[in-house]
Design a protein around this nucleic acid. Sequence first.
DNA 1: AATAATAGTTATAAAGTATAGCTAATAATT
DNA 2: AATTATTAGCTATACTTTATAACTATTATT
Lengths: 157, 157
Amino acid sequence: MGQARKIPVKSAAEDGGLDASLREILGYTVKRTSNILQADAAAVLDPLGLRITTFSALVVICDHPDVTQSQIAAALNMERSNTVLIIDALEEAELIGRHRVPTDRRAYALRATLEGMKTRDAAVRALSDREEILLQDLSREERATLMALLGRIKPQP
Amino acid sequence: MGQARKIPVKSAAEDGGLDASLREILGYTVKRTSNILQADAAAVLDPLGLRITTFSALVVICDHPDVTQSQIAAALNMERSNTVLIIDALEEAELIGRHRVPTDRRAYALRATLEGMKTRDAAVRALSDREEILLQDLSREERATLMALLGRIKPQP
DNA sequence: AATAATAGTTATAAAGTATAGCTAATAATT
DNA sequence: AATTATTAGCTATACTTTATAACTATTATT
């Protein structure tokens, strides 16, 4: 039996295939796809000075003026503590501003600046254009189906 | 057109919903789902002494005896350098062994131990049981559709 | 023989995620 | 009103995943 030939493992030549049984696990397949999309999105956002997390927070702030950091954390499923540096970065870049809330001196009301709005629009457009390429093999209907199915997976106790 | 309507921040009370416009971006929705599944899978694997990366490598090794680290890296879409510590961990736990390749003294032929096989089986079963719960709202057909659609998203140049 | 390419390794870093504990301010309770 | 509990933001820290550069030993190519 030995290895007379140096690569009996069919897939070495074919790049993929060794993970066949992993692909039956949804978590694996979703993560694999997520990695592809994340790497791609990061590259798209980089020239705009945004990372994925700062982009996400920026969109929420643009859509919902006067939102607080805690609300952002809840919306994006992240810890409050992790929003701090993200909001810091957006403020540093002058894409958003922290404003005081008259009725609650603990909280900040976050509002996008004009440049923040413009950056958001540019980023959304760039990502959208890029996804058009990544999803070129899927029909509109298939894309909608994919999104809908993903949306139905929720954390379980 | 401006923003005549100000979007009255409906969602502050409702916990979710603030990310509505992000959810239209596939990358965001996929990542969100991925995070849910990852956190869940990590909790399932933890009692077995596995992390997600070590589990993935273990499965590939069990399925393909004498696979090399480079092949694992290619299959799992990771850098060769990052396989080292993963394989180290599996070897340390005596779930796999590094064996020399007679024809190439640079490479290691990786083989699972008996305990490695057992651990793999237990992990796959535990993950499968858990996914059954997470996917209870999706029919068999819908799950198959989801997997197939995800499989059609590939990295683009 | 000289050069290039490959396998594994080391070191390091960036990014995302998570936990614990802190201060200040607000809300709830007695 | 005074005490207590909760909340918002923050700091520090750490772990996991992923990424890059450079190194050694070995094999392949020219």
